[in-house]
Amino acid sequence: MKKWIQAFRLRTLPLSLSCILMGNFLAAWVGRFDCWVGSLTILTTVFLQILSNLANDYGDSIHGADSDHREGPSRAVQTGSITLVQMRKAIYLFAGLSLLSGILLIWIVFQDQIVIALSFLALGLMAIYAAITYTAGNNPYGYVGLGDISVFIFFGLVGVVGSYYMQTKSFNSIILLPAISSGFLATGVLNVNNIRDIESDIKAGKRSIPVRIGRKAAVAYHTILIIGAIITALLFTGLTFTSWAQFLFLLITPLLLKNVVAVRSKTNAMELDPYLKQLAISTLLFVLLFGLGLNLT
């Protein structure tokens, strides 16, 4: 089990859960929260994140991004602890679990609204497809620098707005601000990963954003993402202000800025690697304090 738990990359789960928690906090803020719906949303997201991690392990191994040149943590297929055949079976398993969990969630929420149910089913299938084809398949979009856009959409807009809509069956344009904030932070985590792997990605032909624009510009891009996340959260708070408790999320600002400084100063891949986890956990804490402050009003 140990090799599979390592392949699941549990340290990425706080990041994937952040956008779902943000959507549920916003739903609770308007007085519309169902515990069962929230729990199923989280379960589906966990399955999707594990699916994405397994597919990434598989895809990077067959395309050469996970090789002896890579300086980050070793991967299961790369080291041979899990074979390609075993990894393919695991990918099929978690794709199926994601689909079953998503269908159950959609049925519970939208069983009397067929058109909306089918729309969310299509969105779920897109999420499964995006999780698998990021680095796997014949034309992985992560290898041409489109990973950032996908992460921003699914870990920001879709994750927050979708989970909010699941709870409320309504849409409020103001929630786009915290959705953008979540998307920026999630994209920041991917950017740290890609900055760390610049050298090995160049050798593997993986054209991530940092590979395309260079490390210096990628660091500036990272700064924009983190500062942008703080600003959009502040804009939402200013527009909905009722209590100073809503500014609780600012307590995490020093951790976010520490990440920016680390990305700028640490050029060694192994030194930079811990700041992936640091930013993922900081993002989760940011969302938890944001939601707590919002619902204390």
Rank of each mutant, 00 (worst) to 15 (best):
G142L: 01
S182V: 01
V85T: 15
G31C: 04
S265H: 12
T267H: 15
F184W: 03
I108Q: 14
G205V: 02
I153T: 11
T267M: 11
S170T: 15
L15C: 02
G124A: 04
L185S: 05
F120L: 10
I224W: 12
R207S: 06
Y58H: 07
Q167P: 04
S182C: 15
G102V: 09
Q246D: 08
G137K: 08
I231P: 00
A262M: 14
N139R: 15
S61P: 09
A117M: 05
G228K: 09
T237A: 10
T168G: 03
L235V: 15
V211Q: 05
V151Y: 07
G188D: 00
Q86M: 10
G214N: 07
L51R: 11
A90C: 05
T135D: 05
T83E: 03
N172S: 14
R11L: 07
L272D: 01
G188K: 00
A28P: 02
F94C: 05
S282V: 02
L123M: 12
S119D: 13
I252Y: 00
A269P: 14
I114E: 13
G147D: 03
L256I: 04
W244M: 13
A233P: 00
W4M: 09
K89F: 08
I153Q: 00
L279N: 05
S67K: 09
L100S: 12
S200N: 06
D34M: 08
S173K: 10
V46F: 10
Q78C: 06
I62N: 09
Q111M: 11
L125A: 01
L93H: 11
F47D: 04
T223G: 11
L239V: 06
A122L: 15
L146Q: 07
S163M: 01
I180P: 06
M126P: 00
L292C: 06
T223V: 13
I5R: 06
Y165W: 12
L104A: 15
T240Q: 14
P14H: 04
I50V: 15
Y129E: 06
T83S: 15
L292D: 01
A27L: 04
W29N: 13
A55Q: 06
L100K: 12
P178E: 04
K258I: 04
K203Q: 11
T237D: 09
G145T: 07
T79Q: 13
V192R: 03
R32D: 12
I224A: 09
L84Q: 15
I106D: 13
K258W: 07
L185D: 04
Y165I: 08
K89N: 11
I174S: 09
D197V: 06
S200F: 07
I198V: 11
N53I: 09
F152A: 09
A95G: 09
F120N: 07
G64L: 06
D60W: 07
G145M: 07
L288W: 03
I132T: 00
T253M: 11
V115S: 10
A76D: 05
K206G: 02
I82W: 01
Q246P: 03
V192Y: 05
T223L: 11
R212K: 14
F241N: 05
I213G: 07
L288F: 03
M126L: 15
T187R: 06
G124K: 03
L292M: 08
S182I: 01
R32I: 04
L104V: 14
K89C: 08
L250I: 09
L288Q: 01
G147H: 08
S208A: 11
T297D: 03
Y129H: 14
G31Y: 08
